[in-house]
Design a binder for these strands. Structure first.
Length: 883
RNA sequence: GCGGGGUUAGCUCAGCGGUAGAGCAUCUGCCUUACACGCAGAGGGCCGGCGGUUCGAAUCCGUCACCCCGCACCA
């Protein structure tokens, strides 16, 4: 018996680290690439290489680990590939900040030295986040760790780039882009976050060239007027029709600009119906400029300062300073008609918060429609499912309105675009390897493109580049496509959409079949976590405080598909659950012999009802957990097992088994059975729980001396029909109700725990009566009775009740009934009367009886009978009490 | 403007056509020999308003109100 002991004190710190090391060293996370076995594979959403673990990482990786451990135990050859993302802008920003602390500027040291610094930083701090993940118990295969800038992944990036270029899906063009003057790079449309802002609308007067009148235009950005190259009106607008083709004098400059007609740009209902046109600094104006053949005058440069083209008075001023000066100058000239408050949304760079400057720039783009259409179709046809499916409308909406993807970044950290320019003839060479000479003119004066790719370009290849693609590796053959992708909805378009597009195009397959989009972790009141609000929960801190298992379980049981309101008291609650498991295991081990190890399989027919009942309940729980996990309902799976383990196994089964286990009954056969079942239920429960709470389940399970060396490779329980037993379930449920009724009576009437009652049960059904005779001792302990008798007359004056066709008489010691208790009885009676009335009314409704399904009608009839019997008992009790 | 979500016990949320649920919080007893991180018991809700479908509606449909999230527009 000695090996089955657990220390009384329970502290996750005693074993978390030890067990994790043992798993890792045992190679359980590392599958063989065996194409014959059924497999389950998944790739991690790679965290930023210099990032710090936050609660969102804890969530996404807990959910993946639950799936992975569940599948692995269920017999699948399971691979979970971990890795990190080089995270272009984010990492460059971090390292720049670090260098700045040492007084070093990025530009001073130059590109090569800077890149070296980033690599150095990556080597020093890069894997911190990965080791932090280990604290959670994640079972990813660390031997297959990848980084988006690894040579293999970089080769995949070059390969894809070249093929897309050759297929005409990557082009280089002068176009309007979102420019971040802080980061000094172009960014894609989805990296711009818009925010409603209270701004101003300045009305400026532009005099006609002949001086005859003035046109008033309105703008939120007065400084851009310096780059105006036209004024536009609607072609059908009567007010201005005769002015089309005339010219205005652009104030603060010496230029004259035309009045053009543009039906797309101008809404005659809005403002004055006259629009200033700045083709170089506004997306709509840019397009209007193209339509009307207008010149583009760039008045703001890449750092957000005014250019020489803005005029001597404004050149080199910051754009916001220039705004003030322009407004002041206009006011002085009497050309500022008025200023209004105006709410509009302003785009910010999501990474640094800087206001985006729309700008004309030469960039590389992916022509997106040919990629988006198959991706849209893959979801429409069900080849890929989004879970929860509420994301599908959003998906279609986005895919149908998608714009070309600007993929070039003017950064130093990332995949350098594999393009070279021939200085001699201007040819552009796009190639996977470094070209020696220009294929057109043979010149060797080639300059490599300095831009790097958007980080998400390499992330888009992640599910297959991590497996060695484009090489036909064994891993790729075995584990691609992956089965599931788990990630947050916030990167549905940044990442998931692009993986699907690239996967479909380059591997011919959807990179995964199911996408589970988890909610965002928020604080207990549903607010976003942020440092400034002080409501951030640090996963490592709570793992220290409550243990990894409690944190994981909390995240899982809250993951219902919506945003997750996380509170510390929840984690505290589930750490209590871990303690409960520990103590239940301790209890079990106190009563289980090692000799039971070779006990033969349980023969169900021999078991007492209480054992058959708990096995049946466990079986139902097993079915529910598997079902819920298949549907990504982590909350339902966790809840089912929590409910079973605590409120059925601990609260009822263990208590019901005690009389036998403590050898009060002296029944040797029953004792052996109870021990065997206790062990069986504990073992299966631990295995069911393992994906959620890997550490504590392993720590206990190892003491049970199973066949396998670790619970993580023990078979996951599946429901077995042979364990179902509705008869035992019904019997025990009735007993539970009777026990609860008596306990309730004891509490409400204020009897002490030591007071024991004699109870008489009237059981008309002979079979049930016999079952109660044989198992009635359960009531003795759990309801604290002095005696239980079946089918004798209920004595005069006994308290009466009625449960499931059984009449109960409880002989209570003499005691005054409190007025509160009488009031409570009356309230109960009224409530039951109301319920009887409504049930009876339904049953008298001919339509209900004829149209409702038979079992519903039957249920109502039974209910009415039951209610009437209870009512009668309650009335008797009330009458007795008022004597 | 387009699309989506929410409104259920004090709080945070499940349930989504057949007798209102959980966790936490609250109240009352218990240190009952696995566990006071526990045990037992209790109180608390006309399931946002109004219509409709149905024998029957938190549950389906419509509508209104308030809240939230994408996307687009925003001179």
């Amino acid at each position: 018996m000695s090996q089955l002991e657990l220390p009384t004190r329970f502290d996750p710190k005693d074993f978390e680290e030890r067990l994790y090391r043992a798993w890792k060293e045992g190679g359980y996370f590392t599958p063989e690439a065996d194409p014959e076995r059924p497999r389950f594979s998944i790739v991690i959403p790679p965290p930023n290489v210099t990032g710090r673990l936050h609660i969102g990482h804890a969530l996404v990786n807990t959910l993946q680990d639950i799936l992975v451990r569940w599948k692995r135990m269920s017999g699948f050859n399971t691979l979970w590939i971990p890795g990190t993302d080089h995270a272009g802008i984010a990492t460059q920003m971090v390292v720049e900040r670090e260098l700045a602390k040492r007084g070093i500027g990025r530009r001073e040291i130059g590109r090569e030295a800077f890149e070296a610094e980033v690599w150095k930083f990556k080597e020093e701090h890069g894997d911190a986040i990965v080791h932090q993940l280990e604290r959670l118990g994640v079972s990813c295969d660390w031997t297959r760790m990848r980084f988006t800038l690894d040579e293999g992944l970089s080769a995949a990036v070059r390969h894809v780039f070249v093929r897309l270029y050759e297929d005409g899906l990557i082009y280089r063009d002068l176009s309007m882009v979102n420019w971040c003057p802080q980061c000094e790079t172009a960014i894609s449309d989805i990296e711009v976050e818009y925010e409603e802002t209270e701004g101003r609308l300045w009305h400026i007067e532009y005099p006609l060239s002949d001086g005859s009148r003035r046109l008033t235009v309105a703008t939120t950005r007065p400084e851009t007027m310096l780059g105006d190259t036209a004024v536009a009106v609607h072609p059908d607008d009567e007010r201005w029709r005769d002015l089309i083709g005339e010219r205005v004098r652009l104030p603060l400059t010496d230029r004259e600009i035309p009045i053009v007609a543009d039906a797309v740009l101008v809404d005659p209902e809005f403002g004055t119906g006259v629009v200033k046109v700045t083709p170089a600094h506004d997306r709509n104006d840019y397009e209007a400029g193209v339509r009307n053949g207008l010149p583009q005058i760039k008045v703001i440069d890449e750092t957000g300062r005014m250019t020489a083209a803005a005029g001597a008075d404004f050149a080199s001023l910051d754009r916001f300073e220039a705004r003030k000066r322009v407004v002041a100058a206009l006011e002085e000239l009497g050309l500022l008609a008025r200023v209004e408050a105006h709410v509009h949304s302003i785009g910010h760079h999501e990474k640094c918060g800087t206001i985006i400057e729309p700008m004309i720039s030469t960039q590389w783009f992916v022509k997106i429609e040919p990629l988006a259409v198959p991706a849209l179709e893959a979801v429409r046809s069900g080849r890929i499912s989004l879970i929860p499916s509420t994301w599908e409308p959003t998906w279609f909406n986005w895919m149908e309105n998608i714009h070309d993807w600007c993929i070039s970044r003017q950064l130093w950290w990332g995949h350098r675009i594999p393009a070279w320019y021939c200085d001699a003839c201007g040819e552009i060479i796009v190639s996977e390897s470094v070209p020696e000479r220009c294929p057109k003119c043979e010149s060797t004066a080639l300059r490599r493109e300095t831009d790097v790719l958007d980080t998400w370009f390499s992330s888009a290849l992640w599910p297959f580049s991590t497996m060695g693609w484009p090489e036909k590796t064994k891993d790729y053959e075995t584990f691609y496509p992956t089965d599931a992708l788990v990630t947050g909805w916030d990167i549905l378009f940044f990442w998931v959409a692009r993986m699907i597009m690239m996967g479909l195009r380059f591997t011919g397959e959807a990179p995964f079949q199911q996408v589970y989009l988890h909610g965002l972790v928020r604080d207990e009141h549903g607010h976003k976590m942020s440092k400034s609000k002080g409501n951030v929960i640090d996963p490592l801190e709570v793992v220290d405080e409550y243990g990894a298992d409690a944190v994981r379980f909390t995240l899982a049981i809250l993951a219902a598909g919506r945003d997750i309101p996380l509170a510390r008291n929840r984690m505290q609650g589930y750490s209590a659950f871990a303690t409960k498991i520990w103590n239940a295991a301790r209890f079990a081990m106190m009563h289980v012999d090692t000799e039971l190890e070779d006990a033969s399989r349980i023969v169900r027919e021999d078991l007492r009802p209480v054992e058959r009942w708990i096995l049946s309940r466990l079986n139902a729980t097993t079915r529910e957990v598997n079902r819920a996990l298949s549907a990504y309902r982590f909350d339902e799976a966790a809840h089912a097992i929590y409910q079973f383990f605590w409120h059925e196994f601990c609260d009822w089964y263990i208590e019901m088994a005690k009389p036998v286990l403590l050898e009060k009954t002296g029944d040797r056969k029953a004792l052996a059975q109870a021990r065997r079942v206790l062990l069986e239920v504990l073992d299966r429960s631990l295995r069911l729980l393992h994906p959620f709470m890997p550490f504590i389940t392993e720590e206990i399970w190892l003491k049970l001396e199973g066949v396998e060396p670790s619970i993580m490779i023990a078979p996951y329980p599946i429901a077995e029909e042979v364990l179902e037993d509705s008869e035992a379930e019904k019997l025990i449920a009735t007993m539970q109700q009777i026990i609860t009724t008596i306990r309730n009576l004891r509490a409400e009437r204020g009897y002490a725990p030591k007071d024991r009652f004699r109870v008489v049960l009237q059981i008309p059904d002979r079979r049930s009566a016999r079952a109660f005779e044989q198992n009635g001792y359960l009531l003795l302990d759990l309801a604290r009775l002095s005696e239980l008798v079946i089918n004798e007359p209920i004595p005069e004056g006994a308290h009466r009740d009625h449960v499931g066709g059984i009449e109960i008489g409880v002989e209570l010691p003499r005691k005054e009934i409190s007025p509160e208790e009488i009031e409570r009885l009356q309230k109960q009676i009224e409530q039951i009367e109301r319920e009887i009335a409504s049930t009876a009314a339904r049953l008298q409704d001919e339509k209900f009886v004829s149209r409702a399904p038979a079992h519903v009608v039957e249920g109502a009839r039974a209910r009415e009978t039951e209610l009437r019997q209870r009512l009668e008992k309650l009335r008797q009790n009330l009458a007795a009490s008022s004597v």
